[in-house]
Write a protein that binds this DNA or RNA. Structure first.
Lengths: 338, 338
DNA sequence: CGCTGGCACTCGGACGGACAGAGTGCCAGG
DNA sequence: CCTGGCACTCTGTCCGTCCGAGTGCCAGCG
């Protein structure tokens, strides 16, 4: 429905606007991109594009800027993903390889993404629900006090205190530890509840209360920690947002502090492949003037968590998408190795 | 050297400026505070205060604003710490009591501080070096692989993998666990190195390598985790900074992302009592237009870490100091209980 | 039918002068 | 030592003008 040339014009407008941050007019367009037609023709095309809602004028007799819908079309049809250059790839790999533990991997990833894209980076910790159990440990800290430590294949460790209804001997503890591990080690977290369901039955009556307490704490941990954690960075890049600054930046900072909002944001993004949410496509109001580029990453072929960046709708989509994809890929590798 | 009235004038200037964010003139001063003298007199006093460097004019024929030196005097001599009201105290306590683990305590504290002061809050995790050991646990994950878990009296947990030079039996492991705990449980982290020094000597020759490996990992953990962690929050409050916004806010955001900078900042603050660093008193350049109010907190009488807020030099010092002190006190209580 | 050049029109941003208001410093008098 | 008065200075604002960029439309051309 839109002629080839009109798409070219839209692409040119997006590119110029992203570069200059200023409304772009017909004359400037023909000068910078050799479209082979005159400004007048471009004006006609622009009028058509405006009718369709892809671009808009801040005010009469100003240049045009892309609308969210315009960016959408640009991302879907007009722009590819700009691959990283080999030196960039090497830099990413080197930077990530120095990490010593999971926290460090996540921290480095955030830094890296923020630097590469010059935007705000968000990295979700590998999810517990999609991970598998490496080991469950029980420590007796006091006669009626047990500490539960949960170790995942992604290196994450969670611990919880359990107050026992009755004193619990070392032998019972060792017994429980052994049985518990033989059932859940190597299994996915989602399967754990059914796997341990009948476990108390094998124990003496007096110990069952404690066993149940331990198990329910374990299940609680799985549920609670289902609320994923995440790390953000590069907030200083918010200062490059635009001129109307204070109004735009405040809700963004607020959104970034509300991990719940961010997690929901990432959660809504498609499970496979890269997702780009532009402006009003974001459900959260404060982020209506931002775009979110996110992608899943994981140690194997499967995604265990997501990462991405938050930036102004006026962003370099191909470059950002390239960086996000590359970082996700390398983080996956690093996790697989450890 | 400064007459009583001149100090009153300075106090009035600080209070008005903090409230209005605008340079304050002699006339407005006499109107709002009944100083009992005429504007002309106040003008003379202002001239004197300016000569001494306590206040300054943005430009000729404008009102005066306090200098860093002026704020200093205000904080040291003119202002008290404004205590929290009973309802506020209750709110603090209620809010903190809902915390389930150390992470949660810290997270809640950050939120609380940011809300109370409407500024950026910084909370340091309880330091390992000043804490005591509650328990050291050793888990055998594989014949030659041991996991070391360290639990502190503040509820912090650290874990490390240890690769053993030789297979290490369960009995040896239990032996080591028992001996280790009998030596270090309840002791301060700083004392641990000397306490475990001769521990390998009690073991068979074949096990000594592993014992040494475990011990050196333990000591490493102490050193590494000496690099404290911290949590920040309330960055959205930065938007209330002032008009010249983008320039001021950027370096602050950058500083907040550099945990190293913040830790140094807190570290430089005095060990006991509340510390207020005003503007250029902060060593880090990016924070030259901010003030940092910090105080130590701890489970017992002794401080194990610090917390505080970062805000514009033009802040409500008495109120901020009151909030910081109160929060620190209640966090200390909560930690002591758990 | 689509492209082009020309033309009149509109609007925002920059420039500059005038003006009001707030604040100061200084001085003479109580 | 305080006070009222006075002249001065500086900023922020308002207003009118002007310029340039950009548009929409139209008639003509291939």
């Amino acid at each position: 429905m839109l002629s080839e040339r009109r798409l070219q014009v839209l692409r040119a407008i997006v590119q110029d606007y992203v570069g200059t941050e200023e409304p772009v007019g017909s004359k400037a367009l023909t000068e910078r991109h050799n479209l082979g037609v005159s400004p007048a023709t471009v004006r006609n095309d622009m009028a058509a594009l405006e009718d369709e809602g892809f671009i808009a004028q801040p005010h009469t007799s100003a240049g045009r800027i892309p609308t969210d819908k315009g960016y959408r079309l640009f991302v879907d049809k007009l722009a590819g993903v700009k691959p990283m250059t080999p030196p960039e790839r090497r830099a990413i790999q080197n930077f990530l390889e120095g990490a010593v533990d999971l926290d460090d991997v996540v921290a480095r990833t955030v830094r890296l993404l923020a630097q590469l894209t010059r935007q705000v980076a968000v990295v979700q910790y590998p999810s517990l629900t999609r991970s598998t159990v490496r080991h469950v440990e029980l420590l007796s800290l006091a006669p009626a006090r047990v500490m539960l430590v949960l170790i995942t294949d992604t290196g994450r460790v969670e611990q919880r205190m359990v107050d026992c209804p009755a004193p619990f001997g070392e032998t019972s503890l060792a017994d429980l530890r052994a049985r518990l591990n033989s059932r859940v080690a190597g299994r996915r977290f989602t399967d754990v509840p059914t796997l341990v369901e009948d476990l108390p039955e094998g124990f003496d009556l007096e110990d069952r209360g404690t066993v149940s307490a331990v198990l329910s704490t374990l299940l609680e941990t799985l549920v609670e920690e289902n609320e994923e954690r995440l790390m953000i960075g590069g907030t200083a890049n918010l200062t490059r947002f635009g001129h109307d600054f204070p109004l735009t930046i405040r809700p963004v900072l607020e959104a970034l502090e509300e991990q719940v909002v961010l997690l929901k944001l990432l959660g809504e993004a498609g499970d496979s492949g890269m997702t780009v949410r532009i402006g009003h496509e974001n459900a959260y109001e404060g982020l209506n003037s931002t775009s979110v580029v996110s992608v899943g990453y994981g140690s194997g072929g499967e995604a265990v968590a997501k990462l991405g960046v938050v930036g102004p709708t006026r962003m370099d989509y191909p470059g950002t998408m390239g960086a996000v994809r590359a970082v996700a890929r390398y983080v996956g590798q690093i996790l697989a190795e450890s």
